[in-house]
Simulated scan of single mutants.
Amino acid sequence: MTVAVAATVAWQVSGHAVTDIPLYHAYGERLAGGLVPYRDFEFEYPPGALPALVLPALVSDSLSGYRVVFAAEMAVAGAIGVLLLAAGLRRLGRARDDRRTTLAVVAVLPAFLGGVILTRFDLVPAALVAGALVLLIGGRLRAAAVVVGLGIAVKLYPAVLLPLLGVVAWRKGGRRELTVVVALSLAPVAVAYLPFLLVGPDGVLDSLGRQLGRPLQIESVGAGVLLALHQAAGIDLEWASGSGSQNLRGTGADALAVLQGIAQAAALALVWVSFARGPATVERLVRHAAASVVAFVALSKVLSPQFLVWLVLLVPLVGGIRSRAALWLTALACALTALWFPARYWELVKEFDPLSSWAVLARGLTLLALLATLMWPAREPEPARSRSPAPSPGRT
């Protein structure tokens, strides 16, 4: 986390930081003042994010103090996430040299993501997902289901892991185990949302609806295609701010947003079906978990830089012959992001800066290559039976 702190401070001092801290501070102050999110003010995140946002406001009233406490809070979450990643690598039986290489690469990545890694709360759900994978590697399916549910309550994306848990549960104990695992996964989400559904149902539904109906954000892979066409063929582009991001607008952008939504759903379904058609071994579970999150990120209509934080603590767990390629593609995606964010972000938005435009496309293609790498058929090592989350088909 030393690199993350140094990079975050450097961007703040440089004056180029693009941060959500003022928004978080406003939320925290309202919460500390007794206002209820969803009912008394619009709140775009799941309710599980509230503790991370309100704690710094309880410690400090000033924006500068809030910024310091929030960054410290995320540094702790990141350190826990790295420790969980290291534990997962050990439980998977990775060689010591491989573990050192992996952790060294992960330690450097905050230099590329310094503009977001400690100024967004994405390290919290990322650490929860890493913790869930460690539990799954150890065969603790039910505990992992609870942790995944906590992750969903903080940021919705861990929901893409639920079908994988369902497959493992069915293989392990049939309908009864599946029912238990689904209930344990949804319980934290229900506990988080239910009070707000009772006092502010319209605000909760509006929050969820805004996430589903967002337009084509300017850093998505579809936007990268349009930006490249703008540079190469001179097609006209327009942008506008809305839904908490800067987006491309127009018929082409709207059509690509729809196509990306369809492609995202199809890619996720293919990942889940692929896992269901093979043995539920630890290595396959880890790989398909990483592929699920990568598919969600790569084909999302919104691809903010902080989404890459979700991959940094997950993709390095993938083993086998594809492990190095997956690790380096993740690093490349982070490095390409650093070409425009945060220093050239507004040049990208307002001027469709050529370097940034091509970098957006290259980052999108890199993430698609990462997805292909994770899903490409290859022989994988069979883990020891004690490390399997569930018996493979035909075993008892």
Results as ranks from 00 to 15, higher is better:
390 A>D: 03
247 N>G: 11
286 V>K: 03
214 R>S: 15
9 V>C: 08
150 L>T: 13
322 R>Q: 08
253 A>H: 04
294 V>N: 06
188 P>Y: 04
1 M>V: 14
320 G>Y: 02
145 A>N: 15
278 G>F: 11
85 L>F: 03
141 L>E: 05
377 P>V: 15
346 W>S: 15
374 L>I: 14
166 G>E: 01
10 A>V: 03
142 R>V: 12
220 S>C: 08
27 Y>A: 02
175 R>I: 14
246 Q>P: 05
272 W>D: 02
90 R>L: 13
77 A>E: 01
48 G>D: 07
258 V>Y: 05
168 V>M: 04
248 L>Y: 00
128 L>H: 02
321 I>R: 00
37 P>S: 00
334 C>S: 14
161 L>C: 02
351 E>H: 06
217 Q>R: 08
169 A>E: 01
319 G>A: 07
87 A>T: 07
10 A>S: 04
302 V>K: 11
44 E>K: 12
257 A>Y: 08
54 V>K: 05
97 D>M: 10
20 D>V: 15
335 A>I: 13
162 L>T: 15
116 V>H: 01
131 G>L: 12
131 G>R: 08
373 T>L: 15
334 C>R: 03
221 V>W: 03
170 W>V: 13
353 D>R: 01
370 L>D: 02
321 I>W: 00
77 A>I: 02
136 L>H: 14
106 V>C: 03
263 A>C: 13
185 S>W: 15
382 E>G: 08
205 L>P: 03
152 I>W: 10
337 T>M: 13
258 V>T: 11
162 L>W: 09
79 A>H: 11
137 I>F: 09
44 E>N: 12
17 A>E: 06
137 I>M: 10
287 R>F: 13
43 F>P: 08
347 E>P: 06
168 V>F: 02
252 G>Q: 01
